[in-house]
Amino acid sequence: MAKLSFITPKKKSLLDIESKILIVFLIIAATLIIGFSTFLFVKSYAKGSSSEDMSKQIAVMSKEIERYKYQARQIQELRLKADEVYTTNELLRESIKNLFDLVPDQITLTRSIMQKKRLVLYGVTPSKEVYNFMLLSPLKSIFHENKTTFYSLENGWYRFVSVNILHGETGVAQ
């Protein structure tokens, strides 16, 4: 503060009004750039973290998919097995139906064992001829090998055990 001057000095500014305006605009521009950069940085960071989460989720989902695929394969296998069983059962049912269709009224079956390539029949026949003509003939047309054993009963009938064997691929389910 000048004590001896007749006037008081005015405050000096380093910049004229044009420079001040220019600097204000530069500051605004710099602020916008910095703000936008910060926004982008934050966004990209958030994106990064979310992509990491997504990767983890993808990994989990992949495992889930693998598990489901495995389950699907198992189900498929089960289904195939079920189909196979169903088919076998169908075949078996057909075979049993055919078998029972084969058995004439005079012969009574007491027991039958159906294996894949073997059919064992237990029953009672009034006579060996009835058995041979009416049951053995159709069995022979189906099985490659037939063995029959007769046991005579007191009433003159015969208990028989017929073992029929198939060779090769074809056969019936148990």
């Binding site: 000048a2 001896l4 007749f6 006037i7």
Partner: peptide, 19 residues
């Protein structure tokens, strides 16, 4: 005279005027 001194320098603005 002080005013005249200031006017003399228009458009410049003096900071100090000494006796």
């Amino acid at each position: 005279d002080l005013e005249n001194d200031n006017m003399l320098f228009k458009p410049l603005e003096l900071d100090y005027i000494y006796s």
